[in-house]
Design a protein around this nucleic acid. Structure first.
Length: 330
DNA sequence: GGGATCTACCGCCACA
DNA sequence: TGTGTGGCGGTAGATC
């Protein structure tokens, strides 16, 4: 767990599943992200291997061959199994997969393993029966097909990733990066996850609840009244009392237009976005400082310890003190 | 725990 | 006619 930053040499094996027609981009994501997570002495926290159903080379969607792989027996020794999405094949078309693969995945989860899917990899997990009754997501373009084939799964096609431990699913390949970083953050804390994100040159923090499809992801640089300026100001003033009216006034918009543009650009309401940023700030302060919980609540803008505790409990299922014990950087 | 109040959100419509 | 923007009002959730 948090011991990585504090000197432990424990490494966790991540087994990435490859098979014929696997999406090449998805396949590279977990290796890149998990291999970028290192401790304070730059030692790797994860050992990433590639696994194929028979241990034989497979051909990706891009046409190149993946070799040097292990067979399914290797996942028994893994901490996390990653299932990238198929580009085509029976999982996508009929919701069926190799019975040996299904058995291996079910056995892995039943013995305490953690699995995550990227993009249409959710079809593989669902075909194995691992998503029945669970929350899941997949690429929004495949949502209708997914619902038709797997009616027992609670599909949330409007989010970046879902968390229904020990099963995690993500939307497109970019959301797969976010989910990998989320798992690193769970395992080793924000500092290590943020450093891994920097190495991958991706945003350090996008929560699972953000929208998959954002109307205007990149603000128009010529538009001086865009909400990006308000968001930048917000991040510098999280500890201050903030209202929508204040923010709208800062960028010379009506409140109505500001809230509308804010949701278009971030996929979240103003309050939801601010709360997420405040929670992220609180987590950083818990990990990296010895400040009192009360002071952290104040500096993060969450106000009171009661509010901080409520927010952390809702978002992470833990308390500030327990979070600090797990992730405090010594 | 319940009521009052405040604030945020969003649908709808009008206007430039 | 289509698009961007602002105002109004109802509803829901948060806070006191």
């Amino acid at each position: 767990m948090a011991s990585a930053e504090t000197g432990s040499t424990e490494t966790r094996r991540v087994a990435v599943l490859a098979y014929d027609h696997v999406a090449a981009f998805d396949l590279g994501v977990p290796s890149q992200v998990f291999s970028s997570a290192t401790d304070a002495d730059d030692r790797p926290l994860y050992d990433v291997i590639t696994v194929t159903p028979k241990g034989l080379p497979v051909v990706t969607s891009a046409g190149f061959t993946v070799s040097g792989t292990s067979d399914l027996s290797a996942i028994r020794h893994a901490h996390t199994v990653v299932v990238p999405g198929p580009h085509r094949g029976p999982a996508l078309e009929t919701g069926s997969i190799d019975p040996d693969l299904a058995t291996a995945l079910i056995d892995f989860v039943e013995h305490g393993g953690r699995v995550m899917s990227i993009c249409t990899g959710a079809f593989v997990l669902a075909a194995a029966g691992l998503l029945n009754g669970r929350k899941a997501t997949t690429h929004w373009r495949f949502a209708d097909r997914f619902r038709t084939i797997f009616p027992l799964v609670s599909l949330h096609p409007d989010v970046l990733f879902t968390e229904d431990a020990p099963v995690f699913t993500s939307a497109g390949a970019a959301a797969g990066i976010d989910l990998c970083l989320h798992l690193v953050r769970m395992d080793a804390g924000s500092r290590i996850a943020n450093r891994a994100a920097r190495r991958c040159v991706v945003p350090a923090w996008r929560s699972g609840g953000q929208a998959q499809y954002i109307e205007k992801p990149v603000p128009d640089a010529r538009d001086v009244s865009d909400t990006a300026a308000a968001r930048a100001w917000l991040l510098d003033n999280l500890s201050e009392p903030i209202s929508v009216a204040t923010l709208a006034a800062r960028v010379h918009m009506s409140e109505r237009h500001f809230t509308r543009r804010f949701r278009e650009e971030t996929g979240l309401s103003v309050v939801s976005w601010i709360t997420e940023q405040r929670l992220a700030r609180a987590r950083e302060l818990l990990e990296e400082t010895g400040l009192s919980i009360e002071e952290i609540a104040r500096r993060s803008g969450l106000g009171s310890t009661a509010n901080l505790r409520t927010r952390m409990s809702a978002a992470l299922g833990t308390t500030p003190a327990a979070y600090r014990r797990a992730f405090r950087v010594k």
